[in-house]
Every structure is written in C-alpha cells, then in structure tokens.
C-alpha cells in the first residue's frame, strides 16, 4: 500500500495552464505560447506529445520541470504543486547541453555530485556509460562527440538520478535509425523496471506509437492539446503489425487535417 502511495506521488496533473511570452516585434505585448492546457499522466504511464514545431512542447516541459512559471493554471506532481526544479523530475533537453568543461564520465555523474551521493553510487556511472554505449569515450570532452553520442550522454545524465518523472524533449532526435531503436527499447526497459512516469516529446510518429500508452497531439498558435489517442497495442509492439500501421495512418491523417485547418485559420 505504501508502495502504491509512492507511485501515485509521481502522477502529473496539468489544469488550465496558460503561458505567454513577450512578442519579439513588440515587447510590450505578449504572445500566448500555451493556452488552457489540461491533461494528466497517471503514475507510471508513458505519454507522448507530438505536434508541429513551435507549438509549445518545450515550453510545457520547462513548466513541468519547474524552470519556468505558468501565467495561469495549476501544475501538480502527485498532489504537490510544482514550484522549483528538483532531481525528482528529470529533463532531457532538446539540445544535449553537456557541460563542455567536463569529460563524458563527469557529465554523466554530474547529478550524483550535485546531490552529494557520488560515493555511494559510483558503480552506477559505469552502468549508465555502458547503457549508452560510450564506455570508450569516458575521458573524452563533449566536443569530441557526434550529435547522437552527445544526446545519449544527456540521456544517461538525466537517468542516473532515477527521477520519478522523466521529461524527454526529443531525446532520440539526433540518433541514427539503429541506435534509435535500441535506445527506444532501452528507455522502455528502464521505464518498466522503475515505473517512471514519462512524458516524451517526439517528432517521430512511429516512436510515439511504439513507446507510449497515450499520444497527445498539439496544435500551434496558441499551443493547445487537440486530441489524445490511446495506444491499445500489446507490448512488446511490432512496428510492422497491421494494428500499428493502421494507427499510424489515422494519426497521419489527423495531423494532416489539423495542419490544414491551422493554415486556413491563419489566412
């Protein structure tokens, strides 16, 4: 029962959240980036967020991480309002943002150092370095890495803290197809082993279907959640099964429609 209560504490609830930014052309007016967003992610669920560029996906993740504040609305983790960043809510940024002055190994262990637990958990550093397949680059500096390698280091850096909620902003975007599929399985394995709540931003519809329990589709200007689709396929999923492909077709059709609608609105 205690364990259940603990996992419940990692659910996310977003209610009527809006966020606007000063418009670049006229700093006195504000332009909405998110408007009236509401959704919830149950503890231990993996939910994907897809949508066109600029619709506010990264903004939403920053709010959930506690790096920015919403203009209106409520963001809750469990029953606690989100106010500050915390190691409980890991965020993998769209850019790897590795610390250039630290080697790969030291980048990965940064979270342990920050929380002062490096001594107890030193073995995990090796484990995560193997996980992302960068063992031989332990002592290289970030600018020696390719884009995909850097993103894998960023992923390991966030995972090493064992966050209750993991917010992923296109973490696999720069990877080649093979590594990407391998990392998808790896993330799924971690997700199942730890019952981490995950919110995954992606541009890849296959990835969204392959990985998530639900897919939320966002539309831009201002960012809203247009539709939530539940993926009722058994795991492990087959990327070429008829059900998979049918769902893929549905989502593509929907996005195409939504895209047309938004361009019509604009004109």
């Amino acid at each position: 029962m205690v364990a259940l209560a603990e996992t419940e504490a990692s659910s996310l609830r977003i209610q009527q959240v809006s966020k606007s930014f000063p418009a670049p052309e006229d700093p006195l007016t504000r332009r909405p980036a998110l408007s009236n967003i509401s959704f919830s992610v149950a503890a231990g669920e993996l939910v994907s967020l897809i949508g066109p560029s600029g619709c506010g996906k990264s903004t939403l993740l920053r709010l959930l991480a506690g790096l920015d504040f919403a203009d209106a609305g409520e963001l809750l983790i469990g029953s606690e309002p989100i106010s500050d960043p915390s190691a409980e809510r890991g965020l993998v940024f769209q850019d790897p943002n590795l610390f250039p002055w630290l080697t790969v190994r030291r980048n990965i262990q940064a979270g342990l150092v920050a929380r002062g637990v490096l001594r107890e958990k030193r073995e995990e550093v090796n484990e995560f370095m193997r996980l992302v397949g960068l063992g031989s680059f332990a002592n290289a500096y970030p600018h020696h890495l390719s884009g995909g390698m850097a993103q894998r280091v960023a992923l390991a850096r966030a995972l090493i803290n064992h966050p209750k909620v993991l917010l992923l902003d296109e973490p696999l975007g720069a990877l080649d197809a093979f590594t990407r599929m391998r990392m998808q399985d790896e993330v799924l394995r971690l997700w199942q082993a730890r019952r981490t709540t995950m919110l995954l931003v992606t541009h890849d519809i296959d990835e969204a279907i392959y990985m998530s329990d639900h897919i939320m589709i966002m539309t831009p200007r201002p960012g809203r959640i247009d539709r939530t689709i539940s993926v009722a396929l058994d795991r492990p999923r087959q990327r070429s099964s008829p059900d998979f492909l049918r769902l893929r077709g549905d989502i593509l059709e929907f996005i195409h429609f939504a895209g047309n609608a938004s361009t019509e609105n604009k004109s």
Binding site: D84, P85, D95, F99, A114
Partner: peptide
C-alpha cells in the same frame, strides 16, 4: 541552459556557482 540543466539534476546554489558558473 547550463544552469537549467544543473537545476533539473538537483543542484543547489553551491553547485551552480562553483561547478557551473565558475567553470
């Protein structure tokens, strides 16, 4: 963004100053 990353990793002020800003 370096400071943001460090904060989501659970960094306190000491880490932010001595391990991020100063380097």
């Amino acid at each position: 963004s370096y400071l943001d990353v460090a904060r989501t990793l659970g960094a306190g002020r000491g880490y932010l100053i001595f391990r991020v800003a100063i380097p």
